[in-house]
Design a protein around this nucleic acid. Structure first.
Lengths: 357, 357
DNA sequence: TTGTATGCGTTATCAG
DNA sequence: CTGATAACGCATACAA
């Protein structure tokens, strides 16, 4: 029992051929009940566990789903992983997770290595500077099916599951505008990322429709993390006139904004409204609680996994682009601009009685 | 180029035998420079990628590290994963992550399946009701090395990396006692978990040393998540006399306590001091910011991975238990008890002038 | 229905 | 140093 038990041993134990054993395991041929039982018992008794390595080699396919993500530590991704996990597990696929650390080289190396394990399918959330599209295409015909999540790498025209980024920031911006803000700033993600671009686009669209103009320096590009959001906010909050509202294109950056505001003694939401994007757990517990655009990481993952499984099952339709809906969660980091903001030089739109609450 | 290229093809291309190719790839024998170059070029040109499946089958060992964790979604674990990732990657091991959803069955099935991929080593953070110890032992001699992280499953006497749980809660409790609290309550994790028990033990030890007694109902067992922490806090806060301080054995539960306190209009820290454990990111941003016991998930993972790699390299010493240090982070959810608390019937230790701030 | 034999892509053992 | 060749554990086409 110390050395791994193989099919041969259970064949001997059950006094059948090794081929028969394989058949009862895979249900690939009818086996006389008597023998079947003997085989099953032998398997149980010897605690036999088929070698995935041998099986995969022979079939040229394993039952693993490879999943490549930029950073487990980013609080948005774990929910996506869970979504994938749950639907994969039901279909008896196992998911193996690789963390690229947002490093394109690591991404490439994981990608290649993963492939050589012959996974049934691949799920990838591209890294920031990902060049993965070229490798992805190379296996478009021959390799396992791939679906990209959350970000579409430039040059990739296969399956993709994303959220309605554009609609999300559009809704957030409209909300700010309706409350009377005219001095809006935005902190975007890295603009070589498709989703960062889309979020900026939604923001601009809302502004254009409302015929509100924006100074170029009110558009700050950051890296989707807290620190870069914090620094961008510092720059913004020192500008004159100071923006009365900042839309941060994800919650991590919104948190950075909140921290910067605290540091500069700019009160939120009285002097500064902040809106984020993602609806991460912590947004409920910051002070004040963050208004944000909700997107479901879990649904993102689950949907992508479902699509991937369909592809594995042989779905031949042309590449799909699935877009998940978003929802604006209004909490306490946003309010109408108050007179104090007007002191910065813009017109007064509120009487002094609209005081700080 | 559409079908995977094998060693045979690069052997033909380089006009050498397949064995030679293997030798240049693995450096397992000296090869004449001329041939070596030809081989290397062929590999580059054809974009050859060795089949990990075949290699693993032959060697009965792959270069994967299997990692089993209860729940990616639990904010403490991603840091651990990152720690593992970083040291593994440097040694050119790839880690494959499996999420058990805290389900012992899933844990077992992942464990067995993982084994059949012949990973070089296994890292496991046992699930709550884990019975994995028995399977772990079965492979103690024959299977790949295993190191357990964070929790030692009952019955497992192999390698383990944990934090100084006992010392952590001891420090937290002493701190509360020194500030004058005498009416302490604790919310523990599931008490079949070794680390939950240790944290409770540290709490008790501090109390015993200070000769402060505690009513049994002031010790509430919960499940290490926010919801169960919330409910436990609700129960606690309705007791008379009401505790003036609650030590929650992890931050998620501490957050639950904070929420419960808000709901019941019990102000923190004036009427209730809260101390957590873990020092998750969000603890800095709650209102008030949480005092908590810091433990480094990253170090936990990195240390465990280092130990595992040593074992893979053949380290034969007897099982190690590595204990990582902790550190108390004092923030704003804790303060000396005030007179108001005394209204519950306990002695007055503070003059009324120590008012609510 | 069941057994036999071949090959999946490598590595490792041996001759040469 | 290099080239055959035999496993590794399994699935499968084919024979019986």
């Amino acid at each position: 029992m110390s050395v791994p038990v193989t099919m041969r041993q259970i064949a001997e134990r059950a006094e059948v051929s090794i081929g028969t054993v394989s058949h009862v395991i895979n249900g690939t041929a009818k086996v006389r009940e008597k023998l079947r039982i003997r085989v099953v018992e032998a398997i149980r008794n010897l605690g036999y566990q088929p070698s995935q390595l041998a099986r995969g080699l022979r079939r040229n396919q394993t039952s693993m789903l490879g999943m490549i993500i930029p950073d487990v530590t980013n609080p948005f991704f774990p929910a996506v992983v869970r979504g994938v996990e749950d639907v994969a597990y039901k279909r008896s696929f196992r998911v193996i997770l690789c963390n690229t650390d947002n490093d394109p080289h690591k991404e490439t190396s994981y990608f290649n290595e993963l492939r050589s394990y012959r996974p049934a399918g691949l799920l990838v959330i591209p890294a920031a500077e990902s060049h993965i599209a070229v490798q992805l295409r190379s296996l478009a015909t021959s390799g396992p099916p791939v679906v990209c999540i959350d970000r579409r790498p430039t040059g990739w025209d296969g399956d993709v599951v994303v959220v309605a980024n554009d609609a999300g920031s559009y809704a957030a911006t409209r909300y700010l505008l309706r409350m009377g803000h005219r001095n809006l700033a935005v902190i975007t993600g890295p603009l070589h990322l498709a989703n960062a671009v889309e979020r900026l686009k939604g923001f601009r669209r809302a502004l254009d429709e409302a015929r509100v103009s924006i100074e170029p320096e009110y558009i700050q590009e950051a890296r989707f993390d807290r620190t870069s959001g914090y620094h961008a906010a510092l720059r913004l909050l020192r500008m004159l006139p100071r923006p009365t509202a900042i839309f941060a294109c994800n919650d991590l950056m919104a948190l950075g904004v909140l921290l910067a505001a605290r540091e500069l003694n700019v009160s939120c939401p009285e002097e500064l409204s902040i809106v984020g994007f993602d609806n991460l757990d912590f947004t409920e517990f910051t002070a004040p609680a963050l208004t944000t655009v909700h997107q479901s990481g879990y649904q993102l993952g689950a949907t992508a996994a479902r699509l991937l499984v369909e592809r594995i099952d042989g779905l031949k339709e042309r590449p799909k682009k699935l877009v998940l809906p978003i929802e604006l969660k209004i909490r306490h980091s946003s309010s109408p601009p108050v007179a104090r903001a007007a002191a910065n030089g813009r017109g007064k739109r509120y009487s002094p009685s609209t005081s700080v609450r």
